[in-house]
């Protein structure tokens, strides 16, 4: 794939994932405001998420959208501020992996409540 096509696809991917995140973040903010009333405990959180497939699917979509959106954004920032270092690709990939692995682990953890 030529550089041009790659840049175009990355731009597209970031904007599409942005649209997904727009919805997810709006819902997430609402959930945050609901959840923090009266303090936050593990019991409460797990009470809502454990065994709740809907929550799990929603948040996994959220994680996947972040996995696409954030590394491309960070790559742009790095490319423009530290162009010569050649660190752009490794750092973006590292962030992508962290988000994917830690995020999915978190979703599994909240869904199972440690019961696996």
């Amino acid at each position: 794939m030529s550089q041009a096509v790659l840049q175009a696809k990355l731009w597209y991917a970031q904007r599409i994932s942005a649209m997904v995140l727009g919805v997810c973040v709006a819902i997430h903010l609402a959930i945050i405001f609901y959840a923090i009333r009266g303090g936050l405990t593990a019991q409460e959180i797990l009470g809502r998420t454990q065994g709740n497939l809907g929550f799990a699917i929603f948040y996994e979509i959220f994680v996947l959208a972040c996995f696409v959106h954030a590394p491309i954004g960070v790559a742009n920032i790095l490319q423009e501020n530290i162009p010569q270092a050649g660190m752009t690709k490794p750092i973006s990939w590292l962030l992508a992996l962290l988000i994917l692995i830690l995020g999915t682990t978190a979703v599994i953890g909240l869904y199972t409540g440690g019961a696996i």
């Binding site: 959180i45 998420t49 954030a70 960070v74 978190a106 909240l110 409540g113 440690g114």
Partner: peptide, 24 residues
Amino acid sequence: LLLACFIPLHFLMLSQSLRGAEGF
């Protein structure tokens, strides 16, 4: 940029739920 730095930590915190309710 700040959110990108924070999100992995946030996920790390939430994955402590794998420890069950007390660990979490």
